[in-house]
Amino acid sequence: MEELEYFAKLPSLEEAIEAVADARKENGALFNHQRHLEQSTVDEVRRVLIANQEAIRQVPSFDELFAILERLLTPIRGAKEMYIYDAALRLGSYLKKMPERVYLHMGTRVGAEALGIAVAERAWIAVEELPSAFSPLKAYEIEDALCRYKDDLKRVHGRLKQRLR
């Protein structure tokens, strides 16, 4: 993913945090998922992440990075689960800590449910729980596909269920 390459090549963790908080692409445009962010949310996220950059720098895995960001950012008004996942993925790219499981948020939950995967009360699903067609993909690519194609997956799954009756 081009977006992750941008974050991976930033020169310092502080610059990565700035870019993550701003939710902007290399060309300065806002990422689609974050187009409704208020400046006060961005400012507070930046402040909190910079204040905690040493803990962020030392995370051993994406799971730990996500847990730290979830704990730090959830109390911030406007920092919702999609923003937190995206922030973790982008910082993970800089830190070379990428997800090995598919993290669930509103869009990915819909996509996973359309495939018949039980997702209630779950934060993630293992790649192995998905149909084998997903196996060539990395966990973050699967997350993107489930979210992006959730409506198509619902439609196809609904048709399959009707035919199997």
Rank of each mutant, 00 (worst) to 15 (best):
I50A: 04
I50P: 05
I50G: 02
A51W: 08
A51T: 14
A51R: 15
A51F: 11
A51L: 13
A51H: 12
N52S: 14
N52V: 13
N52Q: 12
N52F: 08
N52T: 12
N52D: 08
Q53L: 15
Q53G: 02
Q53M: 15
Q53N: 14
E54H: 15
E54Y: 10
E54C: 05
E54G: 06
A55G: 08
A55Q: 14
A55Y: 05
A55S: 11
A55D: 08
A55I: 09
A55M: 07
I56T: 03
I56L: 14
R57C: 01
R57Q: 12
Q58Y: 03
Q58H: 10
Q58I: 03
Q58P: 00
Q58L: 11
Q58A: 11
Q58K: 15
V59D: 01
V59L: 03
V59M: 03
V59F: 02
P60W: 04
P60F: 06
P60I: 07
P60T: 09
P60M: 06
S61K: 02
S61N: 06
S61V: 06
S61T: 14
S61G: 07
S61R: 01
F62T: 01
D63L: 02
D63K: 01
E64M: 10
E64Y: 07
E64A: 09
E64G: 05
L65M: 12
F66C: 01
F66Y: 15
F66P: 01
F66E: 03
A67D: 08
A67F: 06
A67I: 06
I68C: 02
I68K: 04
I68A: 00
I68M: 04
I68N: 00
L69R: 03
L69P: 01
L69K: 03
L69Y: 03
L69E: 04
L69V: 10
E70R: 04
E70L: 05
E70H: 11
E70D: 13
E70G: 03
E70V: 00
R71M: 11
R71D: 13
L72V: 14
L72G: 07
L72A: 07
L72K: 10
L72D: 06
L73W: 05
L73R: 01
L73P: 03
L73T: 06
L73Y: 05
T74L: 00
T74S: 11
T74A: 00
P75D: 08
P75F: 08
P75H: 07
P75M: 13
I76Q: 04
I76N: 05
I76P: 04
I76H: 06
I76V: 15
R77V: 10
R77F: 12
R77Q: 14
G78M: 12
G78C: 12
G78H: 13
G78S: 09
G78Y: 15
A79E: 08
A79K: 07
A79L: 13
A79V: 13
A79Y: 09
A79N: 13
A79I: 14
A79H: 12
A79C: 10
K80I: 07
E81T: 14
E81C: 02
E81M: 09
E81G: 07
M82F: 04
Y83T: 09
Y83D: 01
Y83V: 12
Y83H: 09
I84Q: 01
I84L: 06
I84V: 12
I84W: 03
I84C: 05
I84P: 05
I84N: 02
Y85T: 00
Y85R: 06
Y85E: 00
D86F: 06
D86P: 00
D86C: 11
D86S: 08
A87K: 02
A87T: 12
A87L: 11
A88G: 05
A88S: 15
A88H: 01
A88M: 05
